[in-house]
Design a protein around this nucleic acid. Structure first.
Lengths: 210, 210
DNA sequence: GTCTATATGTGGATAGAC
DNA sequence: GTCTATCCACATATAGAC
C-alpha cells in the first residue's frame, strides 16, 4: 500500500512534466499566431510551425492531436481575450455606455484581423470550435444581454441589432480600410443611433405613413 | 480573361473554337460553383473539379492558367450578379426605397453564402480579384452613391454607414442563423433607422448632453 | 517520454507523348 | 486538346531511436 501514486503531492515529476508540456503548447500557439498573421489564417503549415519552435512536423502531434486542434486552441485563446476585452465598468449614461462598449469590441477586433477572422468567420474547412473553446463566446452573449437589460433596452431584438451594427462596422473596416479609421469614425454615431432607436423612451418609432 | 476580341471576321474556325472554349470554361465554372457550395469555398479540388466535367486535372490548365484564375473568374461572375441584383427601379418614398434596396442586397447575399463569402470576405490565401473581375463591384459603389444622392442623403459618410449596416445584417444572418430569418426581420427597422438619422431633415441629431 | 525517420494519400502544377 | 507520368509541398499516421 505504500506505492507512490503518481497523482499526489506537488513537485512530483509528473506535475513538472505537465507544466513543461503546457509551456511548450503555449509556445507552439504563440508561433502559430505569428505565422497566421504573416501568411493568413488558412495558410498555416505544420512544417513551418514546427520549424519555428525547433521541431519537425510530426513532433507537434505530441502536443496537439491534429491541425484542427491547434486552430481550436487558438480559438479558445481568442475567445477568452474577447471576453476580457469586453469586460470593465461602463459609464452610467446610456449613450456613453454603448459608445464605450462599441469602441471596446471594435478595438479588439481590428487590432488583430486574423484573430477576428478566426472568431467571427467560419472560413476554415471542417473546423468547428469545441464547446470548451466556444464557452467564452457564449458568456459574451450573456454579458451583452445583461448590459442591455441594465440600461433599459428591453426590446428582444436589441442584442441582435447591436451585434449586426458593431459587427458591420468591424467587417467593413477590416475589409476595405485595414489599419485606417474610415469606419472607426462612425462608431459613436452608430451607437447613438442604436440608443435613440432602441432606448426605453423611444421604442420603435417608425416612419410616419403606413 | 476576355480574349474574345480576336478582331477577325465572324464564322472563322478560330471564332468557333473560341466559342467552344468559352462554353467549356462556363461549364467548368458551373461545376466549380456546385463543388464549393458542397464542400466549402476553400476546399475546391482541381481533381474533383476536372472529374465533374469529364476531364483529368491537367486538362483544366488549357482553360485556366491556375486555380486562383478559376476563383477570379468565379469572382467576376458573382460581382456581375451582385450588380444586377442591385439594379431596378426604386419607390419614390425615401423609407420605402432604402428598405427595398436593403432587401435586394440582403436577399442576394444570403441566397448563396459561398458566393457572398467569395465576394465580401478575403478568405482564400493569395487570392486578389483582378481589376476586370472587380469592376462591377466598383460600379456598385458608384451606384449606391447615386441612389443616396438622389434621395437627398448628402452626408459624405452615408454610403459607408449604409454598407456597414446592411453588411452587418448579412454577416450575422449567414454566420449565426443560415437559412433563417433572425436578422432578415430587422432589415426594415434598420433601413428606417438609417433614413431617420441620415435623411435631409434629420441630419446628425446627437445626444442632448455634451 | 520525446523526438526523428519514414510512409501514405492528396493537393497544385508542369512536361511531354499521342 | 487531352492524356500519362511526374514533381514538390502538404497533413497525417506509425514505428522506432535515444
Amino acid at each position: 500500500m505504500l506505492e507512490e501514486a503518481n497523482t499526489e503531492r506537488a513537485d512530483l515529476p509528473s506535475d513538472r512534466r505537465a507544466a513543461r508540456t503546457q509551456a511548450t503548447k503555449d509556445e507552439i500557439l504563440e508561433a502559430a499566431w505569428e505565422l497566421v498573421r504573416k501568411h493568413g489564417l488558412a495558410a498555416l503549415s505544420l512544417r513551418e510551425l514546427a520549424a519555428r519552435v525547433g521541431m519537425r512536423a510530426p513532433s507537434l502531434y505530441q502536443y496537439f492531436p491534429s491541425k484542427l486542434a491547434i486552430y481550436d486552441a487558438m480559438f479558445g485563446q481568442a475567445s477568452r481575450a474577447a471576453l476580457d476585452a469586453m469586460n470593465g465598468d461602463l459609464p452610467a449614461d446610456r449613450h456613453e455606455a454603448m459608445r464605450t462598449l462599441a469602441h471596446r469590441v471594435f478595438g479588439f477586433a481590428t487590432s488583430d484581423p486574423v484573430r477576428a477572422q478566426l472568431l467571427f468567420q467560419r472560413t476554415i474547412p471542417d473546423f468547428e470550435p469545441s464547446p470548451e473553446s466556444y464557452a467564452p463566446s457564449v458568456e459574451m452573449s450573456a454579458r451583452l444581454g445583461d448590459v442591455l437589460a441594465e440600461y433599459g433596452f428591453d426590446d428582444p431584438d436589441a442584442a441582435d441589432l447591436w451585434t449586426a451594427l458593431v459587427g458591420g462596422l468591424i467587417a467593413q473596416q477590416l475589409a476595405n480600410d485595414p489599419g485606417g479609421t474610415r469606419w472607426a469614425r462612425l462608431i459613436d454615431r452608430t451607437a447613438d443611433m442604436f440608443v435613440d432607436r432602441m432606448g426605453p423612451r423611444n421604442r420603435a418609432p417608425r416612419k410616419k405613413g403606413k
